[in-house]
Every structure is written in structure tokens, then in C-alpha cells.
Design a protein around this nucleic acid. Structure first.
Length: 381
RNA sequence: GGGAGGGUAGCGAAGUGGCUAAACGCGGUAGACUGUAAAUCUAUUCCUUAGGGUUCGGCGGUUCGAAUCCGUCCCCUCCCA
């Protein structure tokens, strides 16, 4: 195992009134401030968005996905090109997911064993085998600043017995991945699972922490559980995490989920939501979610969100964006994605500021008072 | 002037006596989307006071029953003169 000497986390300030924390992560590609939202670029690109546009919207870390990059173009080609940063011309820090989420999302096409996961490629059905060692090997070649240990992400709900077996196996996989890790420039995060079961969350978390990772991820949330359950999953995990390491809530989420996570001491988030829903016409605004497709915006010459400072809001009207959307023009998807990403990045900035001033709770209430005035967002049944 | 084929919902297009208010596609109107198998998926789309009402170029027939059969008129496309 190669321990990373180029990665560290500093807790700069804790809000006096809640668990929210402001910090900085040092990497060889620069410093990033937390709490932060990380845009997802599964196939080594944030869909429709260039690196320059990401810098402009003050994006810090972006993600790429091990499973997808493994299939195309292949980790050796990325490595030959000089790693993900050079390959895709992104100069800021990057993170790769381990393929653990595909253990969940491709569940119809895979089989889990102690050794690893057998997949059928979603592209052509060809057989694939991903082990903890293989995942780390691929990620070592991809060269992101932060990499993830391969985990099993069981669906929600999962029985207690299965979850117990699953977290035991994920712990063994974590150990194997740690031993396989062979790139001193990369920080390795362990992933805590355990579903909604308090004792399993505690067990998974404390055992993972004992292995001394560079940071800790909270997995298994936002899989269809209620908000209450999600909040409990976060609490059951954060409780056992060390203060001097970053905490990453994987796959989350909505503006309200970010606020709830930060309130409970989470530092990092990622989610496909802003980009995916943008491509489908849904827009996050200060006053709630809207759909640009709706006829009421046909002649609306105002920006998507009057309080937004993004490139799209500074330059384009709803009427034009609606037109682009309805014509299925790529520029529409790009402009809408820019807005939604900037919305969550700006929310992150505002949260950091509020925490430094010990007024996170007030900020959260003010934000939700406005955001809730729009159409209620029922993202989880 | 002669011959042939057509006119079905906003558009394209099935259907050729009852199971047809009428397949399907597009377009329209809405909804969903949380570590991306996602430029995807779902609902809805003649009118309606929800009981019904009015439709398949127009009009008139045949029939218990017609978008479907018959007559006639209008219009469109192609070929020959």
C-alpha cells in the first residue's frame, strides 16, 4: 500500500450551533474548500460542459467513473494520455468512483462473489470481472486525486442479514483494495455502508475507520428511502467518523439534501441530478424547481433565476432556453446544465460562508423558506 | 380529353361491415429523474357540464349496424394525349 503524502484535510471552522463544518482539502492539483458539491463526469466529461465552463462556475473537484472509463476508452489509453487530467484537459482535482454504484445500478447484469463482481457489459453484454484489486488498479492508472474503495451498494431496503454479510465483505474488499493501492499521488477513501440499521452503520464505520483511510464515504443513501431514514443513515455514520478526515456523502443530491447533509457534518457531495435533470428541462431556482418545457415560459424574457449569477442567467431568457429545449438543441442542454451546476456550487459557497459566520442554521432556514415557495420537490417517495 | 391511385384526429399513417373514438409514429401538454445502461422514462392528447355528444372529403342511399358497401359531387397525385 502506498500512503498518499500529497493529500490532507484541514478543519478550519465548526459552526457553533450545529454539526456543519468548513474545511480545506489540499491536493497536488490545488486546494478545494468544503462543504462542496462535485459535478459528475462519468465518461471523463461532465456531459455538455467544457473544463473552462467548469472553472467559470467555480467547480472544484469533478468525478469520473471507473466502470465507464474501464470500458471506454480503457484505463491504459487514459494512462498513455497522461492520466485523466491531461486526457480531458481538466486542471483541478478529480475523484473516481470505484464501480461500486454499478454493483447496484447494473444489478440485473451482475453477480457478486467474495472475489469480486461479474458484470455483463451494458454496451455489448460481454463478460467483465471487477475485483477490489482491479478497481484500484484501474483507478491508479486513471490517476484521479481521490479514489474509492470498491464496495457493494445493496439496494434499499435490504434485509439485516444480507446487509451484515454485505458490509463484512465490503470491509474485506476495502482491505484488499488498500493493499493493492500503488499510486502515492492518490488519496484512497473507504466507504461505509449498513443501510438503515444503526448497529451495522456503526460497525461498518468503526471498522472502516480502523483501516485509516484518507477520507470516508457514506454509501447506500438516496436509494429510495425516506428523508428521515436518509438523515438517520448519515447520523449513524458521521457519529463514528474522525474529525480530521473529509466525509463524502455519495450520490447526493438535491439542494435540501445538501443542506441536511452539511448540517450533520458532511463535507463532500456529488450527484448526477443537476446535469441529468437539466438535460430533461428541469431547473433548480431560488424559488423552487421549474420545468423550462412548460408553455408558460413561451414568452418569458426573464432569466431562469433572477438571483443567479451563472453565465446562462446573465445572457439568456427563459423563452430562448425553452425554444432550444423544444428543438432538442445541444446548446440548450449545455446552458441549462451550466445553470443547475452553478446553482449547487453557489449553494456550497453560501453554505461555507454561513458556517464561517456561525449562522448555518439561519441560512438553511432562509434558503428553504424561499426554495419551498416553488413547486415542492418530491424526489423521494 | 383518356387511364390509374388517393382524400382517416394538428401532421404522417393503419384500419376495408359490429371487438373502432379509431392502431402506430411525429407534434402538443404535463410529470419523473440523487456515487449516469438516462438527448431517458411515464401520463395525457376530438368535444364534454363526464350523463353523454359529434367524427374518418361533401351530400344521399343500402344495412339491425358504415371510416369500411352503393350512387353522386368536390379536391389531390401520377401516367398517356
Amino acid at each position: 500500500m502506498k500512503k498518499c503524502q500529497y493529500f490532507s484535510y484541514e478543519l478550519l471552522h465548526e459552526d457553533k450551533n450545529c454539526g456543519a463544518r468548513y474545511g480545506v482539502i489540499h491536493t497536488i492539483h490545488g486546494d478545494v474548500y468544503t462543504p462542496m458539491f462535485m459535478p459528475v463526469g462519468t465518461c471523463a466529461t461532465v456531459k455538455y460542459i467544457s473544463p473552462e465552463e467548469l472553472y467559470d462556475m467555480n467547480s472544484q473537484v469533478i468525478l469520473a467513473n471507473t466502470y465507464h472509463c474501464w470500458l471506454r476508452p480503457g484505463e491504459d489509453i487514459v494512462n498513455y494520455a497522461g492520466g485523466l487530467h491531461k486526457f480531458m484537459n481538466y486542471k483541478r482535482p478529480m475523484l473516481t468512483d470505484s464501480g461500486g454504484y454499478q454493483v447496484f445500478s447494473l444489478s440485473k447484469n451482475r453477480k457478486i462473489s467474495e472475489e469480486g463482481v461479474k458484470f455483463k457489459s451494458h454496451l455489448d453484454g460481454s463478460p467483465l470481472f471487477l475485483s477490489p484489486e482491479k478497481s484500484i488498479e484501474i483507478q491508479n492508472k486513471l490517476g484521479a486525486d481521490i479514489i474509492m474503495s470498491l464496495d457493494e451498494c445493496p439496494p434499499y431496503p435490504t434485509t439485516y442479514d444480507y446487509m451484515k454479510k454485505s458490509i463484512e465483505r465490503t470491509l474485506r474488499w476495502a482491505k484488499r483494495g488498500q493493499e493493492a493501492h500503488n499510486n502515492e499521488y492518490q488519496a484512497l477513501f473507504g466507504i461505509c455502508q449498513g443501510g438503515e440499521y444503526e448497529d451495522l452503520r456503526k460497525y461498518s464505520t468503526t471498522k472502516t475507520v480502523e483501516m485509516d483511510f484518507d477520507g470516508y464515504s457514506i454509501g447506500g443513501t438516496a436509494l429510495g428511502e425516506s428523508k428521515d431514514v436518509m438523515h438517520k443513515m448519515i447520523e449513524y455514520t458521521v457519529k463514528y467518523l474522525p474529525k480530521d478526515k473529509p466525509r463524502y456523502l455519495m450520490g447526493v443530491g438535491t439542494p435540501e439534501d445538501l443542506l441536511e447533509g452539511v448540517l450533520r457534518g458532511v463535507d463532500m457531495f456529488d450527484c448526477v441530478l443537476p446535469t441529468r435533470i437539466a438535460r430533461h428541462g428541469s431547473i433548480l431556482t431560488t424559488y423552487g424547481k421549474i420545468n423550462i418545457r412548460d408553455k408558460k415560459y413561451e414568452k418569458d424574457l426573464s432569466p431562469l433565476d433572477k438571483e443567479c449569477d451563472c453565465y446562462t442567467c446573465k445572457n439568456y431568457t427563459k423563452a430562448y432556453l425553452r425554444h432550444l429545449y423544444k428543438c432538442d438543441e445541444g446548446l440548450g442542454k449545455r446552458l441549462l446544465s451550466i445553470h443547475n451546476l452553478r446553482f449547487l456550487l453557489r449553494l456550497s459557497e453560501d453554505m461555507r460562508k454561513a458556517i464561517q459566520e456561525d449562522r448555518f442554521l439561519e441560512f438553511k432556514k432562509e434558503f428553504m423558506d424561499k426554495y419551498g415557495q416553488g413547486k415542492p420537490t418530491t424526489l423521494i417517495k
